[in-house]
Amino acid sequence: MSAIGTWWKERCPVPAGQLKELTNEPVPNHLRHWWFCLGGTPAYLFFVQIVTGILLAVYYRPGQAEAWQSVREITDEVAFGWFIRSVHKWGATLMIASVILHQMRIYFTGAYRAPRELNWMVGMLILICTLMTGFTGYSLVYEQLSYWGATVGANIMDNVPFVGAFMKNMLLGGEAYNSHTLSRFFILHAAVLPVVMLLLLVVHITLIRLHGVTEFQFPSDANKPSKTFNFFPDHMLTELMIGLVLMIVLSALATILPATMGPQADPLTTPEIIKPEWFFYVVFRWLKLFSGTAAVLSTGFIVFVMFLWPFIDGWIRRRTKASELSVWIGILAVLAIIGLTVWEAAVAH
């Protein structure tokens, strides 16, 4: 053993002590509370998505003639195809849900405040990338709803002043949904967005490591001899547990509520009821409340405000004494989001 060890150390001269230190950063005690692990959950799900996504890409054929057929083959013919596809679908759902929960946790605990403003912005970018990946991924199934959802989405983009038409043409590869569109979606979904997200994640985690996690003191932890515990193996084991629970939940969801398939996309017939994926319900409903450019601009403005929120929040906190204002704004925003989502889910049009 030691001979092999020596051989290996010569070939790969990583200073063991530094490595240990690097991976073994003390983790603050508050992370023993489960809801502080919500950042690790999307990371784990991201990994699941990559694995199942690669598996699915083995059989998927982008292209209007074949896309739906190949998804049907995956679902009906390939061994465990329905399972891998369902895990991918549910993985996406859970990932988006956990990203949102993570963001809410960060927001309400004020963890985005100085000096971590930049990491909030990186997180916002990751959120946008996640949503875009969900959007493009759903479109790849090329069923009636996903086709029309994509068409509507692209046309909404058209309403953006000055650059809208350009963006839409870039996304669709033409004025309207055409034979190039699916390959663009596929490249975005399977290559561009994941790589961008991976890079953003590296930045995200590096920034966390550089700043350290925002620490919180809980009364129950007050009498602990130490303010921290070990990342390895202690926190690692927690993450492993979360991972396994997620796998069990995913398997169960995939089996009990497997991903279904609607009829193949028909560019000539618009279905009577068009719904995007659930995570776009809020936007979809918002856009219905206003018209055209106003809707798009207001959406863009909200995203912009969210993006810059740490600075806005800092500005407000400096101006006023109401340090709890951000919490109230947050509660209002969450209620609005839930309200719009439920509204969209409850009505047909």
Partner: peptide, 9 residues
Amino acid sequence: LFLLSLVFV
């Protein structure tokens, strides 16, 4: 348990 859920699958 994960194994079990995969058996179910």
